[in-house]
C-alpha cells in the first residue's frame, strides 16, 4: 500500500494546486488537448465515414487504411514529426489525431450501415434527394454509433495525450515523465491516477450522450406500445378479432 498511499498524498497535497504546474492547470490542458484532437480527427474522419456509409463503396480501403494507421506507434510518429517541425504541441496534435481517426471513421460508416436498408430505399423512392437522405435519415439514425466511435477515440486520446509532455510543457504527462526521471514514483503514479479519473469522467459523459442521441421511436422497447384496433367499425362487417391485432 506504500506507493498508492504516497500517490494519494501527492494528489491531495495543496502544494500541487498552486503555480503553473498545478494539477487543475495540467488537467485542463489535458482535457482541452483531447477535445481539440477529437475535433481535428472528426473533421477528417466523419466526412469520409459518411461518404463510405452513404455510397456503400470504399469500405475495404477504409478498413485497410484504419488498420495501417492503428499500427503506427504514436510516440514514434510524434518524434518523427517533431524532428520535422520542432518541439511544442504541433507534433503531439498530429500524432494523436492519427490515433483518433480510425475509431471515428469506423463509427461513422458502421452507423450508416446499421440502418435498415428498406427505410433508406423508401426515403429515396418517395423523393428525398441524396443530401436529404443524408441529413434527415442517415445522420439521425447513425448518430449513436458515431458517438460510440468518438467515445472510443476519446478514451485512447486521453490515455495517450500524456505523450505531449515528451516535447512540450503540457498536460498530465508532465507528472509521468518528471516522476519517472527523478524517481518520484508518488508523482508518477499520482499523475497516472489523474489520467484514469479523467478517462472515467469522459466515459461517463459519452455513455450518456450515446443514450441521448438515440432517436425516439428507435428505442422502441421502452415506449408504450399501443396495438389498439385501428379499423373503424364498419356496418355489416363483424370484426374478425375482438381486442388486440387489427
Amino acid at each position: 500500500m506504500n506507493i498508492f498511499a504516497d500517490a494519494l498524498n501527492w494528489i491531495l497535497d495543496p502544494a500541487n494546486y498552486a503555480g503553473p504546474g498545478a494539477i487543475p492547470v495540467r488537467a485542463l490542458e489535458h482535457l482541452g488537448f483531447t477535445f481539440l484532437t477529437l475535433l481535428l480527427a472528426s473533421a477528417i474522419a466523419i466526412p469520409f465515414g459518411f461518404a463510405i456509409g452513404h455510397s456503400g463503396r470504399g469500405r475495404g480501403l477504409a478498413v485497410a487504411t484504419s488498420g495501417g494507421l492503428r499500427a503506427i506507434p504514436t510516440l514514434g510518429l510524434l518524434t518523427l514529426v517533431a524532428l520535422w517541425i520542432g518541439i511544442g504541441l504541433g507534433a503531439p496534435y498530429v500524432a494523436l489525431t492519427v490515433l483518433a481517426i480510425p475509431p471515428i471513421l469506423a463509427g461513422a460508416y458502421t452507423g450508416f450501415e446499421a440502418i435498415d436498408r428498406g427505410a433508406i430505399d423508401a426515403a429515396r423512392a418517395v423523393g428525398m434527394s441524396e443530401v436529404q437522405i443524408l441529413t434527415q435519415v442517415e445522420i439521425p439514425l447513425g448518430l449513436p454509433l458515431l458517438i460510440g466511435g468518438l467515445r472510443s477515440a476519446a478514451l485512447q486520446v486521453v490515455a495517450t495525450a500524456t505523450l505531449a509532455a515528451y516535447v512540450a510543457d503540457f498536460g498530465l504527462g508532465r507528472y509521468l515523465f518528471s516522476g519517472l526521471k527523478t524517481r518520484d514514483y508518488a508523482q508518477m503514479l499520482g499523475g497516472s491516477i489523474l489520467v484514469i479519473l479523467l478517462a472515467l469522467a469522459l466515459e461517463a459523459v459519452f455513455a450518456t450522450l450515446q443514450r441521448i442521441v438515440v432517436p425516439r421511436g428507435v428505442a422502441s422497447t421502452r415506449l408504450p406500445v399501443d396495438r389498439a384496433r385501428s379499423a373503424r367499425p364498419r356496418p355489416g362487417m363483424e370484426p374478425a378479432i375482438t381486442k388486440g391485432n387489427p
Partner: peptide, 9 residues
C-alpha cells in the same frame, strides 16, 4: 521539457 536526453529533438 524535451525528453530525448540532449538528442536530435
Amino acid at each position: 521539457p524535451v525528453e530525448d536526453g540532449g538528442g536530435p529533438l
